[in-house]
Design a protein around this nucleic acid. Sequence first.
RNA 1: UCGGGGUUCGUCUAAUGGCAGGACGCGGGUUUUUGGUACCCGCUACGGGGGUUCGAAUCCCUCACCCCGAACCA
Length: 568
Amino acid sequence: MSDDATDRSNSGPGNFVDDLVRDDLARGLGRTLMTRFPPEPNGYLHLGHAKSICLNFGLAQRHGGVCNLRFDDTNPTTEEVEFVESIQADVRWLGFGWFKGPYYASDYFEQLYAWAEQLVVEGRAYVDSQDLEAIRAGRGDFHRPGVESPFRDRTVEENLDLFRRMRAGEFADGAHVLRAKIDMQSRDLNLRDPLLYRIRHAAHHRTGTKWCIYPMYDWAHGQSDAIEGITHSICTLEFQNHRGLYEWCFDALHFDPRPKQIEFGRLNLSYTVLSKRRLQELVAGGHVAGWDDPRMPTLAGVRRRGFTPEALRAFCDRIGVSKRDGVADVSLLEHAVREDLNARCPRVMTVLRPLKVIVENLPEGETVHFDAPLHPEHPAMGTRTLSFSRELFIEQDDFMEDPPKKFFRLAPGREVRLRYACLLTCVGVDKDPSTGEITALRCTWDPQSKGGDAPDGRKVKSTLHWVSAAHAVDVEARLYDRLFKVENPMDVPEGGSWKDHLNPSSLTVLRAKAEAHVATAGEGARFQFERLGYFAVDPDSKPGALVFNRTIGLSDAWAKIVAAGKAG
RNA sequence: UCGGGGUUCGUCUAAUGGCAGGACGCGGGUUUUUGGUACCCGCUACGGGGGUUCGAAUCCCUCACCCCGAACCA
């Protein structure tokens, strides 16, 4: 124990919210720790939400508390059931569950309205009948105080009457609003008589047409927290400016105990955009196939791509939680994904860009079988049988007629190993006489090297993946690259758009040859295609027509050598 | 310019008055039937300036820079 204080090698990523919660718990909260994840159902959840979900649910999990899922559904014009459903599915997929609920701010509309009337009665709120522009103008700006509305001094009776008639539907949208009566001189702009209710004759996805006035965020959120008994209301940095108003509401309603609002820095990721509005724009503009396009940073997208919830949670643990507005490197996410997939994925061989190989010393019609482990480090995962015959496919990238110095793979006269099979030597190259294009490789195998090692102990510098032409299954492989070409897509020159940074080759579709073992794989199944990366079966797959998404490639030392121009 | 936050390796993040540490990344190496994995070694940081102190990333002053805020969005 005493060593812990001095052993700095152990200190993991920071999480100042967790520290605060621990302090509060140590001091004695007097009630159960309760957090909440409060999405607005107006879009799909993305990686940024994953950070918030892991934070809120994680806190509850670690400290014997409870975390509510609550839909912040106070704006009927943007919210839809499609989203409340996808959000629940995504939270569950990530590995979290809620104790009761889910909850909805709309369930509290009646209570919220009653409290608003209370404010009116106490002279702390009034109905303003100025139009939008006048209200905006009256608010002033950073340097000028606001001016009071001419309607600010209406009597309680008049305010109550008007507010009730607002609810009753007597007025058109925009005719009146309910405002808190605070201080038009305040340096905190949120305290310059903020709007509490606006009229919206719009159907709500849950309350239908029962209401035609809807509470604003600032009126709904804190009170919803209080109703549920939330102890720690954790939100992102942009809400720091609202804390004064959050507290004002609790003062006005004399809430005790009250939730504590804590703000943290939202997740930003290099080479991607994380904002619902922009993701929506990518979908609407047809830049991707949908919210669940595997290139999207949505939870639906990365799930389809083959990311695991475990990897996402590990990533969220590792980036830490602070008040800094930073940008996490996408390579950290990729690392978490590879780390998890490496441990759990069975290995198989698939050739993405086939190059035909003819094994001259193996008679046509003859098949040799090899047993190969499904995971070299986990024998318990079992084995599968590989078929080897006269016609094979290897990767086009694995052969060069005139290789540079550091190219260890197949070349004329050179011997390599076929993974789990045998040693193979290239003895000739067939070319199309008119184009000069290589059509096939002439090779011989060493029957003494069955399994991959020669009895004479000779070594080869490279091991290639391969499939037998006669036994392979045709599959579609979808390769993904980063959606954006630049680290910060929001860094745009004058007159440009962040969408100018979209990577035109973020998707490559290939017709590949896979070993027979994958033929029966079901949707969502994950494999490592040896030497190529991790792949997951896409829902577009049909019987006999598998589609694989490349979740992430393996780290590729050779590609780095080539990119650095050091291949020799 | 007013208010609210923020500034530690390239990135994320520790250390809260006592040797600036970890992870990712990058470079090198060992092992290897994946140019994978694993393992080893190395790399780079306290925004600037003043002060307090035996001692400052940490406390004080000051400057600079960055983010958020003037929706009937959340």
